[in-house]
């Protein structure tokens, strides 16, 4: 792993409300959601993070803002990873979509939308991908009842 690169990246990212720190051997950056697109562009174009690994969210029901949206990127050239973390509120759970930068964002954002109800501004197709049409609620939110099922087939008597 190229520690020098991560160190340079950390210095470059510092500022603009971004707080890069090292956690578990990878660079984790807390940032305001307005800074997302600029940061991603910088990661991709200047530092060669060419692979978008995943986007997911973390639900903190007691906290305000309630959600963290988490992106992971990987550089296939330097074999290093970086994580971006943005806090969003429940009432305004919107972040910018990365579909213009990474094609794989289409599907991963749909999954995150399924599970947590995060809206990705710019992703035109947020239909359910793992869930099905008509499913109410977002099952990985902590307030989704554990045993609530929404069957598609009527049960036998």
């Amino acid at each position: 792993m190229d520690q020098g690169l991560l160190e340079r990246l950390r210095e470059r990212l510092d500022g603009d409300g971004r707080e890069p720190v090292f956690a578990h051997g990878l660079l984790a950056v807390q940032l305001p959601r307005e800074a997302l697109l600029d940061t991603v562009k910088l990661l991709k174009e200047e530092f060669g993070f060419d692979m978008f690994l995943d986007v997911t969210a973390v639900d903190w029901p007691q906290r305000e803002p309630r959600f963290d949206v988490v992106h992971h990127f990987y550089s296939t050239r330097d074999h290093v990873r970086v994580r971006l973390k943005m806090a969003v509120t429940e009432a305004d759970a919107v972040v910018d979509s990365l579909v213009d930068h990474y094609g794989s964002a289409h599907f991963m954002e749909r999954e995150c939308h399924d599970m947590y109800g995060i809206v990705f501004r710019g992703n035109a197709d947020l239909r359910p991908i793992l869930l099905y049409e008509g499913f109410e609620g977002h099952p990985l939110r902590k307030d989704y009842p554990k045993e609530r099922e929404q069957p598609l087939v009527r049960y036998r008597e």
């Binding site: 793992l130 869930l131 099905y132 099922e149 929404q150 069957p151 598609l152 087939v153």
Partner: peptide, 9 residues
Amino acid sequence: THKQAPILK
């Protein structure tokens, strides 16, 4: 899964 159930049926 519930999503698979209609296919099984």
